[in-house]
């Protein structure tokens, strides 16, 4: 790994200031960034750890019923919190392994936007709002493709605000080696609409399967998507799954999510 200067600010403003320097990079739980740096694929000159910023941690229920989760909150904390809705709990419980869940953070996961990460699916499916040090970004605008987000240089995720669906389900088909999602489908059922977000499958990163949503808004049943399919051409192909198989799994996992949320 290349060397760097390590900084661990305790306030958001200090962190933001430190991130203004050239080639500074934010460090969340490090569960993706540190392995990347070991391969010498990233070479920040300054690493600004966000883990000592207490105002970025914790989970709370807002007056409008939504839930806010601090960007520095670990997956384990999310998984074990009483106020978390079912699908999100399942999702957090199944990220990586126990040790990874004790370090990895929601903010780090969303900022990285790995095409196979789980958190982008729940954020997009629930229509979450990503709150940064400078603005609020809706999930629909936040995810901009594989490893690409609306975050500006030096901008950090302070918290994420999730509208709470009336029912939800996350169905993850794991890539057996990495345990990331080979296909993960998060379905959120709200009073007025259903949203389906798919991770792990697409070259473009997490996406909403709008045809399935339309069908489910019409008739919320697993059968209502029987004749639908996602475009294979957009799917990822690798040694674990072809485009065709991933497209098939998107449908199967969506049907399971429908049943799971019924």
């Amino acid at each position: 790994m290349y060397n760097f200067e390590f900084k661990q600010p305790t306030t958001i403003s200090d962190a933001v200031n430190l991130l203004k320097s050239d080639e500074a990079q934010a460090l969340g739980g490090g569960q993706t960034l540190i392995p990347t740096m070991k391969q010498r694929l990233a070479s920040p000159s300054t690493l600004v750890s966000l883990t000592a910023i207490s105002e970025m941690k914790g989970i709370c229920k807002n007056d409008d019923g939504s839930i806010s989760i601090g960007g520095g909150t670990t997956h384990a904390e999310v998984a074990s919190h009483a106020d978390i809705f079912a699908g999100l709990k399942t999702l957090a419980e199944n990220i990586g392994d126990a040790a990874v869940r004790n370090r990895g953070t929601i903010g780090g996961s969303l900022a990285n936007n790995d095409p196979a990460a789980c958190y982008p699916a729940v954020a997009l499916s629930t229509g979450a709002t990503i709150v940064t040090n400078s603005r609020e970004i809706s999930a629909d605008d936040f995810f901009q493709g594989m490893f690409d987000t609306a975050l500006e240089e030096g901008e950090i995720i302070i918290s994420v605000r999730f509208p709470v669906p009336t029912s939800s389900s996350y169905q993850k088909f794991v890539q057996p080696a990495s345990r990331f999602a080979m296909v993960g489908v998060f379905l959120s059922k709200f009073a007025d609409e259903t949203k389906v977000a798919v991770t792990g499958a697409s070259e473009g990163g997490v996406f909403r399967w709008s045809e399935a949503e339309a069908a489910l808004n019409e008739n919320f049943s697993a059968d209502s998507i029987n004749n639908l399919s996602v475009d294979q051409n957009d799917m990822i192909s690798d040694i674990h799954a072809s485009k065709e198989y991933r497209a098939h799994l998107v449908k199967i996992m969506t049907q399971r999510a429908i049943k799971g949320a019924s």
């Binding site: 390590f6 661990q8 490090g30 569960q31 540190i34 392995p35 690493l47 750890s49 883990t51 384990a76 126990a98 040790a99 990874v100 004790n102 370090r103």
Partner: peptide, 15 residues
């Protein structure tokens, strides 16, 4: 008190 992977954490993070 929490299980972590010591290879995926900097020494300075454990200060």
């Amino acid at each position: 008190g929490k299980l972590v992977k010591a290879c995926t954490m900097f020494a300075l993070e454990a200060d």
